Amino acid sequence: MSAIVPAACKATAAVIFLHGLGDTGHGWAQALAAIRAPHVKYICPHAPVMPVSLNMNMAMPSWFDIISLRPDAEEDESGIKRAAESIKELIDEEVKNGIPSHRIVLGGFSQGGALSLYSALTARQKLAGVVALSCWLPLRNSLSQSVIISNKEISVLQCHGEADPLVPPILGSLTVEKLKMMLNPSKITFKTYPGMPHSACPEVRRNQDLFILELERHDSSGKRS
């Protein structure tokens, strides 16, 4: 299930945005609706409910299990890969609805941002870009360029608060270093925000909105759509 903000006219582009741990898609759907580009459909899926190791095995909406957020933490590899396949199925659904994959932006906050990055890197579909807010790249140490089939030239906006107590800023830095090794570095933008905790401040929202709107104005060849 997803919270959906339909396009005001015929949808020719889409944003799939993934919420963070313990959240739902509703709040982000409302935030993205404020952009209201008339031809863009916004899709904010809800994560399944499952026990999360990081939170004493309490059941909550989660895309995959999180054992720890230390840079060297063990990761739920099978859960991450399974969740990524579900996101790729969502992309396929929109392609069947008539929206080309290169007109689809994938994004997310925290755990959702982590999943959006991993899904984009491993997707066969060519995507417009990724918005990765306050997050990290899952399975970072085992990923190589060989897994990237269609998105070596993808545009990435990564934002992280310098005072984030939940997802340490070092995870953001390690992520952008890895992305620049695997992708075209000129297509990666990494913005940090002094004093910002684990949240998306108005400046982050503005940067995110501008990034999405700029991508949606252009197709993959850089021509006006």
Rank of each mutant, 00 (worst) to 15 (best):
A83R: 02
A47W: 01
W28S: 03
I91G: 02
G108H: 08
T175P: 05
D209M: 06
I66N: 00
V156G: 10
A3L: 04
I212F: 06
S134M: 06
A200T: 13
D23Q: 15
I43Q: 00
C9N: 10
Y193H: 01
S53E: 11
G129N: 02
H198Q: 07
K96G: 02
M196A: 15
L139S: 04
A37C: 05
V131Q: 04
Y42I: 12
I99T: 09
S146R: 12
H160K: 11
L69N: 13
V52G: 00
A59L: 03
T12R: 14
A13Q: 14
F190P: 06
E94G: 01
L171P: 08
L215H: 00
N184F: 06
L213N: 10
Q145R: 15
K191N: 11
A37S: 13
V5T: 15
V5D: 01
I149K: 15
C135I: 02
N141Q: 13
L133E: 04
A114K: 01
E75W: 12
E94W: 03
C135D: 00
P194S: 07
C159L: 14
G79H: 06
P169S: 06
L18S: 07
V130W: 05
S119A: 14
W28Y: 15
L133Q: 11
M196T: 13
A7M: 11
I87P: 00
L213M: 14
I43K: 01
A120N: 08
Y193R: 00
P185Y: 13
L210Y: 07
H160V: 09
D23W: 01
I104V: 13
F211W: 09
K10P: 03
